[in-house]
């Protein structure tokens, strides 16, 4: 797999805010059908890195390649045009608007008369929500009236409906109960089979370790390293997150101290 051209390559990315380097020379890759966990403490720079890919921020230096081609992502719109869909930790839903309105936010379907095609949007929403969450009924209600899991489904539906090739999930299970977390895990496995590349971002190792093929660990804006999950233990990855050292450099004493 490493021989093939990666779906996404973020090469030597740096960004700073007011003199502080939030992301400092980070390189990560993602292949089709692969799940890469992006790990690190809060403030390690994971979310910032991923917002560069989703078009919310622009990197100061570095380049992004999609299928080996350099691309210029200047806005969320550009990212979506490249098949990059993001499910934000905050879900990025407008609470006062219903599910179809949120699903198509910024990409509304229009009638030939130039008005919103609410019927078509409602139909598409019923379709995609039917697959994700068959019990979902509150199609026409503002999403603030929905439960955490239902809101999450709307955010996921938004990414799926537009045929994402690259999916970014920021803390996808942080707000969910055990049952809903299991559903999201199933969904990730299914999407993987369809050849979609997925970045899973989390500060909690246990959320993503079993789902990921590889993990990239960040600390203080820098990349600590990237490992195959089949070749390392959870403890070693935890060591990367806490100590900021690769598995080979961690001493037994340091690992002991973590617990």
């Amino acid at each position: 797999m490493t021989g093939s051209v990666p779906l996404v390559e973020m090469r030597d990315i740096s960004i700073q805010f007011g003199g502080i380097k939030a992301v400092d020379g980070v390189t990560v890759t993602l292949h089709p059908g692969e799940v890469v966990g992006l790990l690190g403490h809060n403030g390690a720079g994971k979310s910032t890195l991923i917002k560069i890919l989703s078009g919310a921020y622009q990197a100061n230096t570095g380049s992004i390649l999609i299928n080996g081609q350099p691309v210029d992502i200047r806005s969320p719109r550009d990212a979506k045009a490249l098949g990059i869909e993001t499910i934000y930790q905050t879900l990025a839903l407008a609470d006062n608007i219903d599910a179809p309105g949120n699903l198509f936010l910024g990409r509304e379907l229009m009638t030939p008369w130039g008005t919103l095609d609410d019927d078509a949007m409602e139909r598409a929403t019923r379709d995609v929500m039917g697959r994700l969450n068959p019990n979902f009924r509150k199609i026409k209600e503002p999403v603030k009236n929905l439960s955490g899991g239902q809101r999450q489904s709307v955010a996921i539906a938004r990414a799926l409906h537009f045929n994402a090739k690259i999916l970014i999930m920021d803390e996808p299970t942080a707000a969910l109960g055990p049952q809903e977390t299991k559903q999201v895990a199933e969904l990730i496995k299914q999407l993987k089979k369809e050849g979609i590349g997925i970045f899973l971002i989390s500060h909690d190792l246990h959320d993503v370790f079993d789902l990921s093929d590889r993990v990239s660990v960040m600390k203080n804006g820098k990349l600590v390293g990237t490992c195959r999950t089949s070749e390392v233990t959870k403890d070693e990855v935890l060591g990367m997150i806490i100590l900021g050292k690769l598995p080979g450099q961690q001493t037994a004493a340091e690992l002991e101290e973590m617990h």
């Binding site: 989703s54 919310a56 806005s75 969320p76 719109r77 979506k80 993001t86 934000y88 905050t90 990025a92 839903l93 407008a94 609470d95 006062n96 608007i97 309105g101 949120n102 936010l105 910024g106 990409r107 509304e108 919103l116």
Partner: peptide
């Protein structure tokens, strides 16, 4: 639709393009 989206969640509106 955009006016209401901006009022509901300005960040979501921005991220929606």
């Amino acid at each position: 639709r955009y006016v209401f989206a901006i009022g509901g969640n300005p960040e979501a509106a921005e991220l929606g393009g």
